[in-house]
Amino acid sequence: MSITEKGQAMTANRLRDGAVVFFTRSGDWSEAIDAAVLATEPQAARALESRGKDDERATLVTGVYLFDAERRDGHIRALHIRERIRTLGPTVRLDLGKQAEGLGGAFPAENGG
């Protein structure tokens, strides 16, 4: 039986190249969803968002937002298909994007995964 922890993770696009990145436990940005920090309390989520806005102002990233996610067996899974596609790459080109670069999330885009 796996333990599921629900919360919110933070994502953005890196300003200079547009790459999808996730805010990590160590306070920087990673291209891999599994490095993302999961805020399980509303207060932590707000703190996260405020850090994101700081990094937007510092022109590191753009388009910061929080999304619902859960931790399953040590991996982060986005709850909405849109965000799962962002953690992987196009579902119609498995040879492209994070999924092809060893940075993809552990869960398929489709539900039931």
């Binding site: 696009n13 999808v20 102002r57 022109t59």
Partner: peptide
């Protein structure tokens, strides 16, 4: 100017869009 932080994203967005540059799901 955008990369140097002289333009905010809100200011830059219409300028880049007028030149066909979107920020999409995975990249520009």
């Amino acid at each position: 100017r955008r990369l140097a932080g002289e333009l905010t994203e809100d200011e830059f967005r219409p300028l880049r869009l007028m030149n066909g540059l979107y920020l999409q799901l995975h990249a520009y």
